[in-house]
Amino acid sequence: MRSISAGYWAGARAVAPLAPVIGIVGVLFGYLATAAGLTPAAAIVMSATTFAGSAQFAAIAIVGAGGTMAAAVTAAALLNARYAILGISAAPEISGSPLKRLLVAQFVVDETWAIAYAGDGRFEIARLIGAGSLLFVVHVLSTAFGSFGGCLVADPTKFGLDAAFPALFVVLLRPHLTAPAAMVAAAAGAAIALSLAPFVPAGIPIVAAAAASLIGLRLR
């Protein structure tokens, strides 16, 4: 029992440095969602049920621009398609009743998934839940703040905030670049994504880039 709660704390501590960024993103989402015509309650429910920043921004951008609901849902589904892959990779460690498995799976986002992989490639479920709980609370509260409190940051690009997410992913990628094969997979993943980006909807290039990991089959 003790080691499990230690895992929760380890996960929460590992993700804590990223929490301020998630908070800023949440405030921005809350603001943009209400600007796009959602009620604050709808914005908060979206952050609680979707819990995946990029898909939320895409969906409300389409709604705000007068796009169809089908377009918004499709764009969000494509952007979140990679979560099906992350979910499959984490599946062996997620056990229990179907409802429990479904709920625990919701903690999987890019950041928590990266943190749950502790060093040797073993997926630690306690770290996922610890990191996921902290980010979930920050995400939902900051969305509420942004949707009710108006926006403090009128133009996020002015402060270079659009560079925050790529930088966040660099921080998350770093511990995974332990072997030459990982460097090759990273380079191949980036190349696949960029070469597809001009031709297919956003989200698809990321899913296709997962194919770069198949070079692992050639490793002995």
Binding site: P166, G189, A191, P205
Partner: peptide
């Protein structure tokens, strides 16, 4: 057999996310 593939999933996906967020 899939273990080496799963280990390379994070580098491949995160590099792809970074590349598309910076260069598109």
């Amino acid at each position: 057999r899939l273990f080496p593939v799963l280990r390379l999933l994070a580098p491949a996906l995160f590099a792809a996310l970074i590349a598309t967020q910076v260069f598109t």
